[in-house]
Amino acid sequence: MEAIISLLTNPYYIQVVTMMGIFLIAALGLHLITGVTGQFSFGHAAFLSIGAYCSALMSIHLHTPFILNMLAGGLMAALWGVILGFPSLRLTGDYLGITTLGFGEIVRVVFINMKITGGAGGLAGIPRETNILLVYIVVALSIWGIYRIQNSRFGRALVAIREDEIAAESMGINPLLYKIKGFALGTFFAGVSGALFAHLMQYLNPADFGFARSFEILNYVVLGGLGSIPGAILGTAVLSLAPEFLRFVKEYRMMIYGALMVLMMIFRPYGLLGGVDFVQLYKRLKSRRKAGPTLPGNMP
C-alpha cells in the first residue's frame, strides 16, 4: 500500500504520465484526421506549436485565465488548420502528406524568426498552470468528444470519405468541406495539447516542434492501431513511455527504438489494436458468436 502511495506521489511519474496525457490529446486529434478521415498529416507538431505559442503569449502579455488561453490556443490552431486545409485538402495521399510536412517546417522557421516568440533562443517565463488533474480532465473530455464525433452523422461521413471518396461524394457528402471540418477539429485538439505543453514546460523552443515530433505523434496513432480510439491511447502510452523504459540500454536506446518500429510494423502492420473493435468484441463475447474481425478495407 505504501509503495502504491509513493508511486502515486512520485513527481517523476506524475511528470511522465502528465506528458503522456498531453501527447494523447494531440494523438487523438491526429486520430480524427488520419485514422477516421484517412488524410495524411505529417505536420501535426506545427499545430501543437501554434497552440503552445498562442496560449503562452496570452498568458505572458495579457494575463488572461489559463482555460481561456488554452481554448484560444486550440482555436488558433484550428484556424490555421482551416487556412492550410482549404487549399491543400484538395490534394490526395502523399501529396497532402508532404504539403503538411512543408507547412510544419515553415511554421518552425517562422517562429525562429519572430521577435515576440523569442526566436531561436526560446520563450521562457510561462506560468505553470498545467497539472495532472487538468490534463486528464481534458483527456477524458477529448476521448468523449472524439467518440461522439466518430459516432455521429458527421463522423460516419468522415469514415465514408476514408473508405471511398467518390462513393461518399455520390451519396451527397461534400468531401472537401467535411475534410476541412475534420482537419480543423483535429488541429483544435493539437492546439489544446500544445497549450498544456507550454504551461507544463514553462519554456518553449521552436526546435521542439520539428517534423520529428510530427512523426512521433503519427507513430502513436499508427502503431496503436489506425482508426481506433483505444489504439491511439495504447500507442501513445507504449511509445511515450518506451524511451523512459529503454533508458537502461543507454546509448543503444534510439537504435532499439528504431528497430522496434520496424518490427512492430512487420508483425502488426495494422497496429497493436488495428482492426479490433471493442464494442463489437464486447457484443461478440456476450453472444458468443464466432466471426472474424473485419479489417477496414481501404485504410491508408
Binding site: 517523476y12 511528470q15 511522465v16 506528458m19 507544463l200 514546460m201 523552443n205 521542439d208 524511451p243
Partner: peptide, 12 residues
Amino acid sequence: GSNSSEAANVTQ
C-alpha cells in the same frame, strides 16, 4: 537524447 520535453522528465 537532446530532446527538451524528455529533459523535463529526466530532470524530474
